[in-house]
Design a protein around this nucleic acid. Structure first.
Lengths: 137, 137
DNA sequence: TTCCAAATTTGTAATTGTTACAAATGAGTA
DNA sequence: TACTCATTTGTAACAATTACAAATTTGGAA
């Protein structure tokens, strides 16, 4: 497992404590958190952490391609550490987000109608297995 | 072409002037506008229009399935009048949104990993044909 | 080691998108 | 006409994000 500091250095980002903790959080907890969720999670451990730092850091990481910014549903931006290609499913009952690795269309570097595709997001919505079972009986 | 008023009545929505104008706008201008864009576009013609009315109306229409709410990129919600299945492409240079009708995966009523899919969004991102040509030379 | 410049972080305020809510308005009906 | 209910409006609240300048930290040069 590549160390957090090495990932930062490889992307020409100075490994400050704040940056290490934020990236570590996103690597460890694959919950697609918002900026605020990350702030809340780290605030205990780092009492002087500023929400602006979280926003700045997420922006930097996203620009470098370390993180992916997700606009799933509604008006909040969620973040995830970039691993293998996958798609997202969000349950309309419990709001939980699932990563799906089943087969799906890939669009990397495709040219569609003359437009160059550099990024794609497939977002599914419905009722998750767990919520279906609860309603079932 | 189905009349605006008929669409509203079929969905048990009283056809007020505000509702007619908002739906008409979305049917005529397929620009995937935000609530604010719709408000700005109609404010001249309807000086007493309230932004709250635009939000309320978009919410009603979306709940009835007349409109589709899109979370493409960033933290704004865009709306479109619901026609044939298609996917979206947004240019990272000019921000324009294109509807694409090329072949793509469909997920209607699929069951994936036990989750019931009721809605899906495929959002592509990249550089549009027009912007590619500008850079080209 | 000390000092300095640059990078990073912080806190506050501003901005943007959206929702809550109660008063005002409007439409249909007895 | 008067009444009731739906709709619209304006204001304020709220949430997510960004702008910005001051404070702090960092890494390297003297």
């Amino acid at each position: 497992m590549k160390s957090i500091i090495r990932i930062l250095k490889e992307n020409d980002i100075a490994p400050s404590m704040q940056r290490i903790k934020i990236l570590e959080y996103l690597k460890n907890y694959k919950t697609h958190p918002t900026a605020d969720m990350i702030y809340q999670a780290l605030a205990d451990e780092m009492p002087t952490l500023s929400k602006t730092t979280v926003y700045n850091t997420l922006k930097t990481f996203t620009e470098k391609g370390i993180l992916m910014a997700l606009s799933l549903f509604g008006n909040e931006i969620r973040y995830e550490y970039n691993t293998q290609p996958h798609i997202h499913f969000q349950c309309i009952k419990c709001d939980k987000i699932y990563d799906l690795y089943n087969s799906f269309d890939h669009y990397n570097n495709d040219l569609i109608d003359g437009h160059k595709i550099t990024e794609y997001h497939i977002n599914l919505k419905g009722v998750c297995k767990s919520c279906l079972e609860k309603v079932g009986d």
